[in-house]
């Protein structure tokens, strides 16, 4: 009897756990829309800069590392709904994709986060 109770308790716990786990593995499919025209131009976060050009190209640089805009590294970008995708183009031939979820895009503020919850906030630079 004791073993039966123990097994039932285990099954219950396991069922609850499985239900909880299955719930945690699902993602919210809802997405927002942002106007990419707000994205064009230079954005700054501290010493880190991004420039989004019309046509989906851009460069990024960090003045803390003594890099100027003309020396910035190239990337391509797409903004689909709230997904901002950067594909950093390596000179050696590889690509480094980075995907973010935009939460704010106005004429002056850009905010997004990655899948690890890291939030990035930029302000527009004229």
């Amino acid at each position: 009897m004791k073993n039966m109770v123990k097994r039932l308790a285990l099954l219950l716990v396991a069922g609850l756990a499985m239900g909880a786990l299955m719930t945690s593995c699902s993602l919210d499919d809802g997405e927002d829309y942002f106007d990419e025209e707000f994205l064009y131009g230079r954005w700054k976060n501290g010493t880190e800069y991004y420039r989004y050009d019309i046509g989906g190209s851009g460069v990024t640089w960090d003045t803390a590392d003594d890099v100027s805009e003309s020396e910035g590294q190239r990337f391509t970008w797409t903004l689909t709904g709230d997904e901002l995708k950067h594909i950093h183009i390596m000179v050696m031939g590889g690509n480094v994709p980075k995907v973010y979820t935009v939460t704010t895009l106005t004429a002056s503020t850009l905010r997004y986060h990655d899948s690890f919850g890291k939030i990035f906030t930029f302000s527009k630079v004229q």
């Binding site: 803390a64 590392d65 890099v67 590889g94």
Partner: peptide, 21 residues
Amino acid sequence: VAAETYLDRNYKLKPSTIRGA
């Protein structure tokens, strides 16, 4: 593996420029 970065004059990495795959 492909990796690239910029270095300063003392051959120290510039972290913001590190790219690799």
